[in-house]
Design a protein around this nucleic acid. Structure first.
Lengths: 261, 261
DNA sequence: GGCCCTAACAACGA
DNA sequence: CTCGTTGTTAGGGC
């Protein structure tokens, strides 16, 4: 559920809390969602210090002194929790617990059990991050797959990293492009609007989240979204918001957004 | 267009006409549809005698003394023609002419130019022939891909060889199974009905074609079909025939056929 | 709200 | 009415 802006702030906050701490225990309850044996995970991390925490697309990467790193995808329902080691065992729906030498612990929770944890996954740069998109890149992708719906593009983590259902709608409203537009039909100025809206919407959201939920490491803030949300009736520009299933996902948009087709 | 029954009779009739004859010339006008150079085709066959003609799935295999063989797929619009060598050059839409020592010639025609001719293609048994299907095989395939529509199965030449759009409908009516049934939902008795209907419908069709068009080597006979055909209004059992696009193909069926889903 | 896999579908070419 | 391939969408499972 968390998308790029939420995860960016999670990384900041988790970093402040655990960088420099030494791992003393790792417990993982995932079966399918872990790319190595639990033992291997434990032995790779125990006695290492956390070096850095970064967001990579929709995943968080936790780097340790010595080079090992853990990559965590929260999927739909995952979240983090900071607690003390002695109560970490009581946390409901915990799927991963990393305990530190100072008695604190970082827990990943997930009621669905869909979280994915990977130790040192192959560093394959699948796609550029949403914050590093260029017009040239968009033109190249759009020329190769001209019939793709523009919302499908924004959601495809193999083409652009970090955007989920909610921010896709926000970006498209900001760019005044209908989610059902075919990317190959976008005129140059629409591509420009899109390439500008992607970072501007996401960066503004990061600012808002930092302001509204300074310590957030779980859940998401969505009160400031402009069109994506069932409580919203009209866009800031005044048009009624349309709710529709697009690409099997609930989509909010308005007729201010031009359909290029 | 011809399916297993038509092709079976083609093979019989062509065999009677050309087995034992010696090739003196081979002319091929296909560009993409031939797997070797025209020269290679010619030199492989000239001075060889035709040994046997068999049907393999929807293709005919023409075997020659010495081991070479030609495999021909007529695609949508191809057909055979027997004529004399001196007029073979005048045959419209001919894509392949095999001339024999006795002055006769076998011509493959195709107004679309889509016929495929292969010299000694890799003998990879892609799928069992429709006439050799067992219940065990069906169960195995259906368990592996349980959601596939049963008509999709019958049409997939990689799963079962020889059936086209028309006979798929006939077989499913005979088995009283709706074309839209999911193969994984077919109860054992429906699978039994299917495994029985496949050969029985096809063999009966072979008999009918032999009777109605004894010398056929081109085109197809469809007058005796029970549900597949736009002129048919009711099945032999009395139900009105439904015409519907299924899997992008015109499909005829009735509500006598049970939908397992 | 996320991602993967399978299947269905459309479009095009041959 | 055939067969590929490619790209896009829809649905279910995890």
């Amino acid at each position: 559920m968390p998308e790029l802006p939420d995860l960016t702030v999670y990384a900041e906050n988790l970093g402040k809390a655990v960088i420099g701490k030494k791992v003393v225990r790792v417990e993982c309850r995932l079966e399918k969602g872990l790319n190595v044996a639990p033992d291997e995970l434990s032995s790779a991390l125990v006695s290492r210090e956390v070096a850095e925490i970064q967001r990579v697309g929709k995943e968080l990467r936790i780097e340790f002194q010595g080079g090992a790193f853990l990559q965590i995808h929260l999927m739909l329902a995952g979240g983090f929790l900071l607690t003390s080691d002695n109560v970490a065992g009581d946390v409901g729906n915990s799927v991963l617990t990393v305990s530190f030498a100072d008695g604190s612990a970082m827990v990943v929770t997930d009621p669905k059990g869909w979280v994915k944890v990977a130790l040192n996954p192959r560093f394959d740069v699948k796609a550029p991050d949403a914050l590093n998109i260029t017009a040239d890149y968009l033109h190249a992708v759009f020329q190769k797959q001209p019939k793709m719906q523009v919302k499908a593009f924004l959601l495809d983590q193999n083409l652009i990293g970090g955007i989920g259902n909610a921010y896709a709608d926000e970006i498209l409203w900001q760019a005044r492009i209908s989610p059902k537009s075919a990317v190959g039909k976008l005129p140059p100025d629409a591509v420009e609007a899109l390439v500008a809206s992607i970072p501007s919407v996401l960066k503004e959201a990061v600012e808002e989240i930092r302001k509204r939920r300074p310590g957030i490491i779980s859940g998401e803030v969505r009160d400031f979204l402009k069109v994506h949300g069932s409580s919203l009736k009209r866009s800031p520009a005044g048009s009624p918001i349309i709710k529709e299933q697009i690409l099997s996902k609930v989509t909010y948009y308005t007729d201010e957004q031009i359909l290029y087709k």
